[in-house]
Design a protein around this nucleic acid. Structure first.
Lengths: 274, 274
DNA sequence: GAGTGTGAACGTCTTCACAGCT
DNA sequence: AGCTGTGAAGACGTTCACACTC
């Protein structure tokens, strides 16, 4: 079990649907779309981003139309889920035909808020910070790295990926100047909360946290975390579970090795079952 | 809304519980623990890893006992969820008192399969690969980086973080020799699937994928993905949604600014609400 | 005929609330 | 008196299956 299909969720930070809600920001028009956005399940949002990537690839290949079945395979989900996800963004398919790739790209981008540019600030220019700074405007368009911060005096002013590093104390000023909307924390764990506090006080409302720390933030700030150790441990859990199952299987006399149940063999040879 | 509490899910790869899935299962020696592992929700596993990190910190601080309430705050979840999660690993608390920190650490480690050592191979020694290789045996103990691979001739044999880089073609041999159980893909997107195939044919059953590509793998391989662009886009979505809600709020006459709701101020000043 | 869009069934995860142990 | 462990209720997300459109 376990595999390629369900691309799955993603590290959320689902806040208790409780009271505290959004403040400021200005006018917009276009109600319909807006109402809709509220209702999209977090899990679906993560998948929409994946669909968008796949669709962008298709555009480059010159594909103009695609069915839910085809797209779902390319995105690693099942077609019912894909259609439901797309229905959250609106009904832009043509029955009997499929979806117009470019139109769909446009609508998903709008829903994901990619029509606006989101400047990113990376804090902590160590190995990971370097990697992030050099990621080149960030893959899926629209996320230019606009500021870098660290505490190391030797790094001040040094350009990394074209952007000079500033001191952490300048976070409020620089972030305001460059209109940073997303902060990425790639510092050592002990520094993470303090850095987070500064980003928040600079008005940054979205934070991507690579430090293995549970950040405390006000209700109006969205945090997502990426924790390598946690990912590893989840994989470890599956190794263990799988091992258990196969020993259980052996103990049970190896009965019923139904569809796709690997056994000890795949440890020392080609794993078949393509 | 959105905030510090719910530590949230994590990028799963939940396979459709559908048909093509596990059959067998049956007797085992050590039944209790084994049966139990099967039943733990994926989301709970991700949180257990977080609890473990927090608990490890407590051990170092010399804390010996902790209540569900305290631990839940430190882990950023609510206490009911924490207790339910811990109940999946077994009942090791003392009513009226709390949990013995060290005992709990031991049980969670066992459930997560951390009693076994998991050698990691990193493929793709670019910026990110370097960062991963230097991560130092990986944070939460037990995940030594044992092999590095790339295609760049200039990198062959060069040690990164103490491990010499090997050629991708040697993946099967080297992984077998060093008993690699987890493969990390940090290559450019076009190379990811080919690398994945080699890892799989080398017997690696767990893959952590940083390439923005949907990997095709056999049923017996577990894939987790970390996609920066997707994370960014999810944050972008929330920025957009938040903006919409606030405009909606204004349109509605700014009524009902319920409990703890900051307003326009936080764009140009300190955000309070600690 | 082909394929979307969706209500309704189903399953999973979360939250509640309290019984039961120390 | 305090806090865990858990059944039962509820929210959420996924899958099914089919009416409807092109």
């Amino acid at each position: 079990m376990v595999a390629q299909p369900g691309q799955g969720d993603e590290g959320v930070t689902t806040p208790p649907p409780g009271p505290g809600v959004v403040p400021n920001q200005q006018v917009t028009d276009e109600p319909a779309v807006r109402e809709r956005a509220r209702a999209i399940p977090e899990a679906a949002v993560a998948r929409l981003a994946v669909y968008l990537r796949v669709l962008s690839g298709l555009v480059e290949q010159g594909v103009t139309t695609i069915s839910s079945e085809e797209l779902s395979v390319a995105a690693g989900v099942n077609s019912a889920k894909l259609r439901k996800d797309l229905s959250y963004v609106g009904s832009y398919g043509t029955r009997g035909v499929g979806y117009d790739v470019e139109v769909l790209v446009g609508h998903i981008e709008r829903i994901l808020g990619l029509t606006r540019k989101h400047s990113v600030a990376v804090v902590g220019i160590g190995n990971l910070g370097h990697a992030l700074a050099n990621y080149g405007g960030f893959p899926g368009r629209g996320f230019p790295v606009a500021a870098l911060f660290d505490v190391d005096p030797d790094l001040m002013g040094v350009p990394v990926g074209g952007i000079p590093v500033d001191h952490i104390d300048d976070i409020p000023r620089v972030c305001a100047e460059r209109d940073v909307t997303i902060g990425v924390i790639a510092t050592p764990p002990p520094a993470a909360q303090a850095v987070c506090d500064r980003l928040v006080s600079a008005g940054v409302q979205c934070i991507l946290n690579f430090a293995p720390v549970v950040l405390q933030v006000p209700d109006n700030v969205e945090v997502r975390k990426v924790d390598l150790a946690v990912e590893m441990q989840i994989l470890s859990f599956h190794v263990a579970r799988r091992a258990d199952e196969s020993t259980a299987e052996q103990a049970a006399g190896g009965a019923r090795t139904g569809a796709g149940m690997p056994t000890a063999d795949n440890v020392d040879g080609m794993v078949i079952r393509p």
